[in-house]
Amino acid sequence: MMGRTEELITRLASEGAVPRGNMPQHFLLPLALVSAVCIGATALLLDNAFPTYHLRGWMPMVVKWGFSISLLLIASAALLLLGKPGRPSGWMLAALALPFAYTAYFVLPDLVLRTHPWPGEMWERCLLAMGIMSPIGFAGAIMAMRWLAPTNLRRAGLVAGFFGGAVAMTAYAPFCPGEGAVYLLAFYFAPIFAMAGIGWLAGPRLLRW
């Protein structure tokens, strides 16, 4: 039996030690590709970008993009870390809470005062966009992770879900007239958590290596 292990070592050594592939091509490209597809398709299909700018300036986008882009970046970094065996990832998962804390700072007063009408305008389109684009972003994250070696598949699936939701929100937010705490909770946070939950459930099946 030991002899067979030695023969295996000889065979593996003969394949060489040069690492397979490179990070830009195998990890960053799928993430960038799904982001570009979602953002590009949304920009092509929808009119009237930044619909509330004339009333409220950039503030709604500061909140929405501030949240979604930071979640996108933190989730990307967390995916990379989770894909490397032996690297502690708990602190990076905790960092995923930062975008939510950031948003809470802006919208919590609204949760009390309820200054925005519920459910707001065009919420169905928002939900549809999140429902269509989140799985696309999620698929890109799964593709990227399969090149790496995640050892906690549920955690990796969860973060891939957050990434998918963040991609969808980043793409759709510029065309969304909806505002307010309840709107964000119902039509952005809930779909993002749903995608993350699906990722948590599906991670072990999709990411096994």
């Binding site: 030991m2 292990t5 290596w209």
Partner: peptide, 19 residues
Amino acid sequence: EDLVQEVLIAVHDKRHTLD
């Protein structure tokens, strides 16, 4: 020993994940 071999193959295949 089966497992040792399986892990060796994984170590080799995923060597790019060691920074």
